[in-house]
Design a protein around this nucleic acid. Sequence first.
DNA 1: AAGGTGACCGGCC
DNA 2: TGGCCGGCCACCT
Length: 110
Amino acid sequence: MATDNNNFFERVYDVARQIPYGKVTSYGAIAKALGAARSARMVGWAMNASHLKEDIPAHRVVNRKGVLTGKHHFDGTNLMQQLLESEGVKIKDNQIVDFDNHFWQPEVQS
DNA sequence: AAGGTGACCGGCC
DNA sequence: TGGCCGGCCACCT
């Protein structure tokens, strides 16, 4: 507790963890929910370390275009797509189909 | 302490 | 939508 230097990461994880099933969101959305819309990159960084966590559905997090930019960082190459499709999200050429319809806006919860 | 990096975003053509 | 550039913020060496 005393050394909450990774509070930022925890913050991202908390939001990502709230992503409902079959829904996806963007890094910018999470960043904005944290109050740091300009730190969207930091969100990605946090996700980079999310592999250390188990309850972090990073596969539900994509960029604003709906492209699986981070699939590269997953265990495999198509693992991210597999997971999303498994949740009912259609993927086309590494891009989420009807992304706008599957988009989920994170909320700032206390 | 300083520089480099990064799973991004927004604007412009 | 696609490509290019700048910005922005925190982490790492």
